[in-house]
């Protein structure tokens, strides 16, 4: 069995998660785009933290688990910022639009 620690009040955590869910659904009804983004993704981060810390018992875990998860997310960040310039930047001397210029595909094969 796992180590002993005081279990959080799971019902209370669940109740807070439902309140946050209601807020995230109500946010877009105000039709303010910035507020929608904030209530949608900001609340998702808070909900994820509540689930991970309390239900997954991450707040009781050893540092190696935190290290493992933070490393995974950092590598995901590397993937994002590595791929973003290629997807987002479509101007400049080095940019070749292979969809418009089919010959560039043949050159690279």
């Amino acid at each position: 069995m796992s180590e002993t620690y005081a279990h959080p009040n799971y019902i209370k955590i669940w109740f807070w998660l439902l309140i946050l869910l209601a807020l995230s659904v109500a946010g877009p009804m105000l039709e303010i785009p910035a507020l929608t983004i904030l209530t949608a993704f900001g609340i998702a981060v808070v909900k994820a933290f509540l689930v991970a810390a309390n239900f997954m018992h991450l707040k009781f875990e050893k540092k190696i688990i935190w290290f493992l998860l933070i490393l995974s997310m950092c590598l995901l960040g590397v993937f994002f910022f590595g791929a973003a310039p290629d997807v987002m930047m479509t101007e400049g001397d080095q940019w070749i639009d292979c969809i418009a210029d089919k010959s560039c595909v043949e050159q690279r094969l």
Partner: peptide, 11 residues
């Protein structure tokens, strides 16, 4: 799912 919900259904 907590992240898929805002991504696909709300925002």
């Amino acid at each position: 799912w907590i992240f898929l919900f805002p991504l696909l259904y709300i925002a």
